[in-house]
């Protein structure tokens, strides 16, 4: 399995740290940012992760805005998959509403998260990520 990387964007530093720690323990490479603009800067600098994992409600730039900006990045700078992790409690939300590939709700079950990400990158076919198609 090729090494996978994740960029975690959450305004809660402690949560971002724990998620990163979890992935690192699994052998992933993980980077943490606490806001949308920081994430964009990192992507523009050439850090091209397998996954962008972002929160939705963040001060300054929301997760939706960040995703929209990411979509406009040149193809080589985009992450392969975009995953939304949100504290929203509405069960009716779908990833399509945010133009994302997957949507996870907090509190995250880490095993379920990893299993799903594994399916996306390996065992299962890739999701309908338009960024990849362009």
């Amino acid at each position: 399995m090729p090494p996978r990387s994740v960029l975690i964007c959450d305004d809660e530093p402690e949560l971002a740290e724990e998620i990163a720690e979890f992935f690192i323990a699994l052998g992933w490479s993980a980077r943490i940012v606490n806001s949308g603009p920081e994430a964009l800067r990192l992507l523009e600098s050439g850090f091209s992760p397998t996954f962008l994992m972002t929160d939705l409600r963040m001060p300054g730039m929301t997760g939706e805005e960040l995703i929209a900006r990411v979509r406009r990045l040149p193809a080589h700078l985009r992450p392969r998959y975009v995953v939304v992790v949100t504290g929203h409690i509405w069960e009716t939300m779908t990833p399509a509403e945010f133009d994302a590939d997957r949507l996870f709700t907090k509190p995250i079950d880490p095993d379920a998260l990893v299993a799903e990400l594994d399916r996306m990158t390996g065992a299962l076919p890739a999701g309908p990520y338009r960024g990849e198609a362009s």
Binding site: E12, R57, G87, I89, T105, K106, P110
Partner: peptide
């Protein structure tokens, strides 16, 4: 949403 934040941290 607010409660889910600490719960997430605790869980992880």
């Amino acid at each position: 949403h607010e409660l889910n934040q600490p719960l997430s941290v605790i869980r992880l």
